[in-house]
Design a protein around this nucleic acid. Structure first.
Lengths: 207, 207
DNA sequence: GATGTAATGTTATATTAATAACAATGTTTA
DNA sequence: TAAACATTGTTATTAATATAACATTACATC
């Protein structure tokens, strides 16, 4: 029924690359061309197209505009998806700024913190609210995804609190591993682990 | 010969959790205890232990101190590994600050930018150099890993430049997909893709 | 000392993902 | 119009990863 995780990741990357192509005036693209722009193979591209049920124009390649739309239909929701950043430290601030104006269908609509100094301020154009008001604002602002950038020692509690407020997905940037109920889609990214992994493979020098 | 990627990732996570346990006065830990602290299973833990060739004290569980050291021998180098952050935007700054004093064997020793305003300044205690000086400083400061946080339109060129200076590993935080020679270990993390993936699975509500 | 038990290390199976193989189709070129 | 070619969609194979199954060990208890 639903697509493999890795395929979804690639679709997101395809779309971004395809938008560039469209801006350059291209209307169609071959599987091997798209593959070359990313770092994978033509077979992989074709297989992903097959999995999402998208077919090319024979001998002309894939119609770029249509493909972008097809990917959008899978990933985007018509109304767009609203995102909150929990924890306005350096990382939270950086992420909020990073996303501003990047993607139209994924909007960071609020940030949250417990520090009275920060509450009420604007962070890269987005207002910072008290974490206490989160449950109410989830409804008011239609927030469905939370990005967690709090100190690791508070991550579990805050994640549980956030999850119980009706959030559908959490992106965890803290080093604390979380345990979420099955109705919350959890994605974790651990910078330190990521770097230590590089260190291991650098040490055992195999690229 | 070398461990599977996923196992290496988990070893990094095990170690961090084990350090907490050690600080709490524990000396041994069972596979199911460690599994409960992270979000995986006892079998997975035992299999990882097997793969790294670490055995427990019969009936007492794994010796925490020894296990931490064993993981260290795999991941760390005795001299430590020096890391550079390329691109001192919000994200670069956040990452630099984030790592300060976190892990003793992975040190961010320099940041680089092309903006004359930033060059010479200190970023979270780390000096910012001109990117032009990178090849020289790689040798002087023994840098082996580069974290890339530059604007996506410059990512490819800068990555090639950085790779040709003798870097062994790159962590790419830009949205531009990179193509590196085989002797450079490349790890990519794309925040937007990550969030769009969450959006997809939230939309197709299956946790 | 025999029996039950808790935990391990390892082999076997299932799942997921990537790669390869190849027939089908339409285009070009002779 | 026939032959060669480029490109696709799909099935088949391989590789990587996670999960399950299970024999083994040593300790505790009777």
């Amino acid at each position: 029924m639903s697509l493999p995780e890795k395929t979804v990741e690639r679709l997101s990357e395809y779309r971004r690359t395809l938008l560039d192509c469209l801006n350059q005036g291209k209307s169609h693209i071959f599987s091997h061309e798209l593959a070359a722009l990313l770092h994978n193979t033509a077979v992989q591209v074709r297989r992903d197209m097959m999995l999402m049920g998208f077919t090319s124009m024979q001998r002309k390649g894939y119609a770029i505009k249509e493909l972008i739309e097809a990917i959008g239909e899978l990933i985007d929701t018509s109304e767009g998806l609203n995102v909150a950043v929990i924890g306005v430290g350096n990382l939270g601030r950086a992420i909020t700024g990073y996303f501003q104006g990047k993607r139209s269908k994924l909007n960071i609509v609020a940030t949250f913190d417990i520090d009275p100094e920060k509450i009420g301020r604007m962070i890269a154009g987005v207002k910072c609210y008290s974490l206490d008001d989160f449950p109410k604002l989830v409804g008011d602002l239609q927030i469905s995804i939370a990005i967690l950038t709090v100190p690791p020692e508070h991550a579990r509690n805050i994640a549980d609190f956030v999850a119980s407020s009706g959030i559908k997905g959490i992106q965890n940037f803290t080093t604390a591993p979380l345990n979420m109920p099955p109705h919350v889609y959890l994605e974790e990214y651990d910078m330190i682990t990521s770097l230590e992994k590089i260190a291991y493979f650098v040490k055992n020098h195999q690229g």
